[in-house]
């Protein structure tokens, strides 16, 4: 009877087929996201080759300590997300709720730290535009670096905000007992999204904070 439970939409034969289709659909979306962020990375690498010294100067103005802490926070949130999915798979409602809450806390912490970094950049006049101020000969091209920095981390942060929204929705449903060992597809699929946003940061962090500084 569980094969045709309420959670299986009528176009699917069974829960397994629905799960496979949902996972593949999410991956198809994530591939478009790879292309989207990939374009930004390609642009960054093209400009760093032409403005190496300015990008290095800009990169040294980033807060490496906060960037590293944020990387650890986000990796931690990926672990708790994986454990939330595991909780759902095992029909462990308490574990699922606990780890969803932890993931939300870590996600919000990431956004908070990012906001702090942004605030510092505004105070130091490092935001591209008429108020941009920087000592040294590379001031003009360093704005290019900060344009990439704000565009890439900004779009990433937007994805994080969407992710936190998804997690909140999962949490409400988990509290209502919607997910079980037979049906946890939304948790798994949202998990894919969350981990993807983590992977984007795994590349953003060394690109902006580490590689650029030595060019």
């Amino acid at each position: 009877m569980s094969e045709h439970s309420a959670q299986v939409a009528h176009q699917f034969d069974d829960a397994t087929q629905q799960y496979e289709a949902s996972t593949l659909g999410m991956w198809a979306f994530l591939i478009t996201e790879i292309m989207f962020f990939g374009g930004l990375f390609a642009g960054f690498f093209v400009y760093i080759l032409g403005h190496a010294a300015a990008f290095a100067e800009g990169s040294r103005h980033l807060d490496l300590a906060l960037g590293t802490v944020n990387t650890l926070v986000l990796l931690g949130s990926s672990l708790t997300m994986a454990l939330a999915v595991r909780g759902a798979q095992r029909g462990d409602r308490r574990g699922q709720v606990l780890f969803l809450v932890l993931t939300i806390i870590l996600g919000v912490a990431f956004l908070g730290i990012k906001g702090l970094e942004y605030a510092h950049k505004f105070e130091q006049h490092l935001v591209p535009g008429p108020l941009f101020r920087m000592e040294g000969p590379h001031a003009q091209s360093a704005q290019l670096f900060f344009s990439f920095y704000f565009a890439m981390t900004g779009v990433h942060a937007l994805h994080m905000i969407v992710g936190v929204g998804l997690l909140a929705w999962l949490l409400v449903n988990a509290l209502r007992g919607r997910y079980s060992a037979e049906y946890f597809t939304p948790v798994e699929v949202s998990g894919l999204y969350w981990h993807f946003v983590d992977v984007v940061w795994i590349f953003l962090f060394p690109t902006l904070y580490l590689v650029a500084r030595h060019v």
Binding site: L79, H195, F203, F205
Partner: peptide, 12 residues
């Protein structure tokens, strides 16, 4: 970075 991404994609 590629190693870290692989670990996340393959396992998480």
């Amino acid at each position: 970075a590629v190693t870290k991404a692989l670990l996340v994609v393959l396992y998480f």
